[in-house]
């Protein structure tokens, strides 16, 4: 064994487990944010590796935009129930009803508003740490965020005033009302995620694999037709072989053209793709060069 190399997936896995256990040991009331997407499915496997044979020392929390793909919600519920772990779901619709979220129009993208419901949920349960599945390779604001990312009482991230993070000694201390976001898979890339899904044989929502879908072309992207996205006049509905690289709000998550029907074929496509994950699939990240940074400053994870 000592003659063998430690592989990159083993090193990443061990780092992530170590981070989750630090949260469990040092934070009073943590939660794991879980959406049913591929990154959060990887997070659940890492949590199993970190804590089994015991149960998770935190509940799973989903902030539901109500704009999710039904396959993803089904996968979320099945996984939580198979694992026998507690799942807390809070909906953006509750915040809209309360008036804390005001939409300009009923069908607009909801990703940016998740911050509001997330902060309300944190306050409701008194969470002092939220573990999330964000990765630094996703976006340039993320590239500068710490693994243990301190947030003030308003949930805000101040990029110029981050705690130094050295070795793997994490400072988890917060004052009451403040909170920490923890990103155990910060150092994983999209490729690492797919290789891990293959290695662990993880079940992911079917829409990650190539399938035929009705789409329309809008604003330089392909949008899936759904009850939320209907063709406007002049737009033509086309049938196309596509898969999703990310699964978010149905009104602004674009699929990519693909024939990859299994994880191995997705890995092959990922190896040669020339467009970033978010660049290809998230219309809301393209509105300005700093969209993600601005959202994070407002409390987004």
């Amino acid at each position: 064994m000592s003659d063998q190399h430690v592989t990159h997936l083993d090193a990443l896995e061990s780092e992530s487990i170590h981070i989750m256990r630090e949260v469990a040991a040092e934070c009073k009331n943590p939660a794991l944010l879980f959406s049913g997407g591929k990154d959060s499915i990887v997070m659940l496997r890492l949590a199993e590796k970190a804590f089994r044979p015991a149960r998770f020392p935190f509940p799973l929390v989903h902030i539901d935009t109500e704009h999710n793909f039904p396959e993803v919600i089904a996968c979320r519920d099945k996984l939580a129930s198979d694992l026998g772990e507690r799942l807390i779901v809070r909906s953006l619709d509750d915040s809209i009803r309360k008036g804390t979220i005001v939409l300009k129009n009923a069908d607009q993208g909801r990703n940016a508003f998740q911050s509001v419901t997330l902060l309300e949920t944190i306050a409701e349960f008194g969470f002092d740490a939220c573990i999330g599945g964000a990765r630094r390779d996703e976006e340039k604001a993320r590239a500068k965020e710490r693994i243990f990312s301190f947030r003030d009482e308003f949930g805000q991230w101040d990029p110029k005033n981050q705690r130094p993070e050295l070795w793997d000694i994490y400072n988890t201390r917060v004052h009451p009302g403040e909170n920490i976001r923890v990103f155990p898979i910060s150092n994983w890339t999209e490729m690492d995620i797919w290789e891990y899904i293959a290695r662990e044989k993880l079940h992911i929502p079917e829409i990650y694999y190539a399938h035929e879908r009705e789409v329309i072309r809008r604003d330089n992207g392909i949008l899936p037709v759904s009850h939320l996205v209907q063709p406007k006049s002049g737009e033509k509905v086309e049938k196309m072989m596509v898969r999703f690289r990310t699964v978010g709000d149905m009104t602004c998550t674009c699929p990519v053209e693909s024939h990859a029907r299994n994880v191995q074929e997705i890995i092959e496509e990922t190896a040669i793709t020339r467009i970033t994950e978010r660049g290809a699939t998230r219309m809301d990240d393209q509105t300005s060069e700093a969209s993600m940074e601005l959202r994070k400053k407002e409390g987004y994870f």
């Binding site: 190399h5 430690v6 592989t7 990159h8 997936l9 090193a11 990443l12 290789e195 290695r199 890995i267």
Partner: peptide, 8 residues
């Protein structure tokens, strides 16, 4: 191949 990559 990819599974024997090291991390630097």
């Amino acid at each position: 191949m990819s599974h024997t990559k090291q991390l630097l």
